[in-house]
Amino acid sequence: MDEDQLRVFVGIVQKYFESETGKGPDTGSPYLGDVSDLPMLDFTGVIGISGVRQGCVYITAGPDLLRALLLHVGETDVSDHNLCDLAGEIANTIAGNARLHFGHDFMISVPVIVRGAAQAIHMPRNTKAYVIPFRWRKHPASLVVSLQ
């Protein structure tokens, strides 16, 4: 994955929060993560990528960010069920929007939800994973993109 492609994902995250809340997140500097020590917060939505590229895209966030986002869009049910649902939906939206850049053959799966910061997403050793850290309303989250 090159710098331009990384920028595509930064732009999509920005657009997602601007569209949903009117305020984009504060994005930190993307970095190449160690696949054995990638960020994992309490709620993670993972999208598998196949077709023209293989790998995965995931978003990981804590309950405070997801709860605030739900309330902002008018959702009063802030149960864990909806926090998981939202993590999956954000991941789905970001990966789906990436098809505008990567094309129709950038195939995305339905979201898989991983619950709990102690869990880990296992990546193949030979892949690189880029981490885009960001904060929305001071709540931290990360988008992780690993594409072969």
């Binding site: 970001i94 990966a95 789906g96 098809r99 505008l100 094309g103 129709h104």
Partner: peptide, 9 residues
């Protein structure tokens, strides 16, 4: 109403 943003879809 979909996240799939490419024109072909």
């Amino acid at each position: 109403v979909s996240a799939l943003a490419d024109k072909a879809t």
